[in-house]
Amino acid sequence: MERLMPIMGFYVKAQGDVRLLPTHQSLYLALFFLWRQSGCTDLFTVSRRELMPLARLQSIATYHKCIRELKAFGYIEYLPTYNYYEGSKVRLIYEGGYEV
């Protein structure tokens, strides 16, 4: 059950958030998938190349807009890196202010 908390918390919070679009939800679901693949670690590595196909995003601009807004809206903590080989770090944040 604990491994489902981020996705459950996301949808509890998202119900009342009119700012979220289907692209935000799709990207969060892709992040959740990668978090599970990483062994549910607190901070996990992601790459745009990996996330865009999972989230079915076609535009790099849309990807950057959504990831930036998910951070601004308090759904994720995003620590970008500009090193192609290293990958950016993400932490999922769920309802109640608790972090994974």
Score class of each variant (00 low, 15 high):
residue 1 M to P: 08
residue 1 M to W: 12
residue 2 E to W: 13
residue 4 L to C: 09
residue 5 M to E: 07
residue 5 M to H: 09
residue 5 M to P: 01
residue 6 P to F: 08
residue 6 P to S: 07
residue 6 P to Q: 14
residue 9 G to Y: 01
residue 10 F to L: 08
residue 10 F to I: 02
residue 10 F to C: 01
residue 11 Y to C: 11
residue 12 V to Y: 05
residue 12 V to C: 07
residue 13 K to L: 15
residue 13 K to H: 06
residue 14 A to N: 14
residue 14 A to Q: 11
residue 14 A to D: 07
residue 15 Q to S: 13
residue 15 Q to C: 07
residue 17 D to I: 03
residue 17 D to V: 03
residue 18 V to L: 10
residue 19 R to E: 11
residue 19 R to A: 02
residue 21 L to P: 01
residue 21 L to C: 07
residue 21 L to K: 15
residue 22 P to I: 05
residue 23 T to M: 10
residue 23 T to H: 10
residue 23 T to P: 04
residue 23 T to N: 10
residue 25 Q to H: 11
residue 26 S to I: 01
residue 27 L to H: 08
residue 28 Y to W: 05
residue 28 Y to P: 00
residue 28 Y to M: 09
residue 28 Y to I: 04
residue 29 L to V: 14
residue 30 A to H: 02
residue 32 F to I: 11
residue 34 L to A: 05
residue 34 L to C: 11
residue 35 W to E: 05
residue 36 R to F: 00
residue 37 Q to R: 15
residue 37 Q to W: 06
residue 39 G to H: 10
residue 39 G to A: 08
residue 40 C to L: 10
residue 40 C to K: 10
residue 40 C to A: 14
residue 41 T to H: 12
residue 41 T to E: 11
residue 42 D to I: 07
residue 43 L to V: 05
residue 44 F to S: 00
residue 45 T to D: 09
residue 45 T to Y: 10
residue 45 T to H: 13
residue 46 V to A: 07
residue 47 S to N: 06
residue 47 S to E: 02
residue 48 R to W: 07
residue 49 R to A: 15
residue 50 E to Y: 06
residue 51 L to M: 09
residue 52 M to L: 13
residue 52 M to T: 09
residue 53 P to G: 11
residue 53 P to C: 04
residue 54 L to Q: 01
residue 54 L to W: 06
residue 54 L to E: 06
residue 55 A to H: 03
residue 55 A to V: 03
residue 56 R to W: 04
residue 58 Q to L: 11
residue 58 Q to P: 01
residue 58 Q to Y: 05
residue 59 S to N: 09
residue 59 S to T: 07
residue 60 I to P: 02
residue 61 A to R: 14
residue 61 A to I: 14
residue 62 T to R: 06
residue 62 T to Q: 04
residue 65 K to A: 04
residue 66 C to E: 08
residue 66 C to Y: 04
residue 67 I to A: 01
residue 67 I to S: 02
residue 68 R to W: 08
residue 68 R to V: 05
residue 69 E to K: 10
residue 70 L to I: 10
residue 71 K to D: 02
residue 71 K to G: 00
residue 72 A to D: 15
residue 73 F to I: 07
residue 74 G to R: 13
residue 77 E to Y: 06
residue 77 E to D: 13
residue 78 Y to L: 00
residue 78 Y to I: 05
residue 80 P to D: 04
residue 80 P to R: 12
residue 81 T to Q: 08
residue 82 Y to H: 14
residue 83 N to H: 14
residue 85 Y to K: 14
residue 86 E to Q: 13
residue 86 E to L: 13
residue 87 G to C: 14
residue 87 G to L: 12
residue 88 S to Q: 08
residue 88 S to F: 03
residue 89 K to I: 12
residue 89 K to M: 10
residue 89 K to N: 12
residue 91 R to G: 00
residue 92 L to S: 02
residue 92 L to H: 06
residue 92 L to W: 03
residue 92 L to R: 07
residue 93 I to A: 04
residue 93 I to L: 12
residue 93 I to C: 09
residue 93 I to W: 00
residue 93 I to V: 15
residue 94 Y to M: 09
residue 94 Y to T: 14
residue 94 Y to C: 04
residue 95 E to A: 14
residue 95 E to K: 13
residue 96 G to I: 10
residue 98 Y to M: 09
residue 99 E to T: 12
residue 99 E to K: 11
residue 100 V to A: 08
